[in-house]
Amino acid sequence: MERRQFIYGTLASATALSLGIAFWPEPVSIPAPLDEAQQWLFVALIPVVLEGAAPAQRLEQQAPRIAVAVADLIATLPPGVRQQLAQLLGLLQQKLGRLVLTGSMLPLAEQQPTLLSQLLDDWRFHFLELIRTAYAGLRDPIMAVWYGDPANWSALNYQPPSLGGAR
């Protein structure tokens, strides 16, 4: 993917300046899509979120590919949304943040699947909205990537109509 730093300084055209317009906003750097450690976080969660959708071994094998698709999806989002997600994932990568969010110092990617499942369940009913946000932010893109893939539709008996030779 092509990444660009959006340089707000280019907004300062002479015409606009002569009109006395206040420019919005100040220069800010755009967070990159998922780094390798963050992708591995998704890799750990994918077999838990999708448990039952396919045999466990197949889910584990496909998890790295699904995580790449999640990263691709995130790359299409506006910078502010990516920044929010980056902050959440950063928190999960820091020991203290992990302790607060998960009750454990162990990296999520090293947790047992049964513990991860319990953790996600705790998060979705948590009294803090921030933690329920984390649950949705991790769960939703995994669901979208898996169920958006035609290779997984036969289990649902779902098939779009064929337009045949019409296209």
Partner: peptide, 19 residues
């Protein structure tokens, strides 16, 4: 499937059974 799976609640076995 894509929109339903992300809007419907839950995850894991119960979610897939619904799907």
């Amino acid at each position: 499937p894509m929109l339903l799976s992300s809007k419907a609640p839950g995850f894991g076995v119960a979610h897939h059974r619904m799907m």
